[in-house]
Design a protein around this nucleic acid. Sequence first.
DNA 1: GCGTCTTGACTGACTGTTCAGTCTATGGCT
DNA 2: AGCCATAGACTGAACAGTCAGTCAAGACGC
Lengths: 213, 213
Amino acid sequence: MAQKATAEVVADVRRDQMLAAAATLIAERGFSDTRIADVAARVGASPALVVYYFGTKDKLLTEALRYSEQAFYTTAEEMLASTPDVVKRLETLVAWTCLPEHEQETPGTWGLWFDLWAQAFRHPEVKKDRVELDQQWRAMIARVVRDAVDADEIETVDAEEFSVAFAALLDGLSIQTALEDPVVEPNRAYQVAMRFASSSLGFPWTNRGTNGG
Amino acid sequence: MAQKATAEVVADVRRDQMLAAAATLIAERGFSDTRIADVAARVGASPALVVYYFGTKDKLLTEALRYSEQAFYTTAEEMLASTPDVVKRLETLVAWTCLPEHEQETPGTWGLWFDLWAQAFRHPEVKKDRVELDQQWRAMIARVVRDAVDADEIETVDAEEFSVAFAALLDGLSIQTALEDPVVEPNRAYQVAMRFASSSLGFPWTNRGTNGG
DNA sequence: GCGTCTTGACTGACTGTTCAGTCTATGGCT
DNA sequence: AGCCATAGACTGAACAGTCAGTCAAGACGC
């Protein structure tokens, strides 16, 4: 019955377009202010078609949330793959989450996070997904640390323990930068995070300007 | 002309009731799933009356957000006032934010936070308010540290710098506990936070069971 | 011709907001 | 004291707009 016909390909492309559009819309307007009609308009289709593919508004938006966050982590993994040194890797991760300049690559991610949290808080399904997503994130951090230990770049430390604290710290700091708290400027957040990393993992670190501004 | 007539008192009480009801509802169902009619029902009034007091749904909900968060900080201040020792004070703060047992006192605060962030991200007015709220929170932390330094309980440290990092860490940790991440259990979050505090401020700390569970 | 896409037109429900008017009590006036 | 005018609290009913989801029918590829 199933040879991958062009039709199926078209369908997959459509789904992806819709998910991407939905994610962008959510980031812009917020979860509950994103309408089926908006998504349809963005992909140049009728609202009915969106319903045809996703059945219900909620399924569409929830899937879009997952889709976007997953994309975020995937991109992060790629960036890591092309960076060998621990310190540079951590700098990359921190810059990626705290410095708004890096927003372009996965636009509006922060807005999505807030909505993801709010949804997860009340909907068990979303909650479960979010836990997995966050586990990926911590695993990534822990892997960076373990690689560094294996390569004798830093002393032996509990990578898992560090990942929990560091991930939490990054979340907290990026909330402030995303919400443009004047006291926690992006650069300051960057330094706070790196200082924590350097003292926890025991490598020397001094701020060498992170951006030319 | 103005002796506080009973009418004015009634009005103030009503407003407060509505704000409290709205806050609870937001915590339960979420910001955008909270209807004027729900709030009205909770206080035993007609929807029209809610509009009479707040003009618009958005004003009501936004004010309710502020109202609730402010109440949270006020309660925290009170708890601090009756706790003299630095370490105990920090333990109180951490328990207050990370341990779900303490939820009862200001129910549903976490749900509210997520919605507050989501709103702040997109609405400048809310954003400004949130910054002020968070400033209060950091100031409270910094004050605890400064008091401790003045009382020679700990060595001299940069209280402001500590408050930024510690507040961020607490935010991040409490997201995990609020979202019931199995990897970051409440007790673990508690320990991570206290360990960070003890090493940053230079006081000894070992976990003496935080709850009898 | 058959199944998968795709749509326009429609609807049914929900809900914020308005409005005209009721009820209550307070305060001044005689 | 008694009476009336005024203001503020309050409501029921209706309005108007919005939107998710339905449906029957057309288009397109195989």
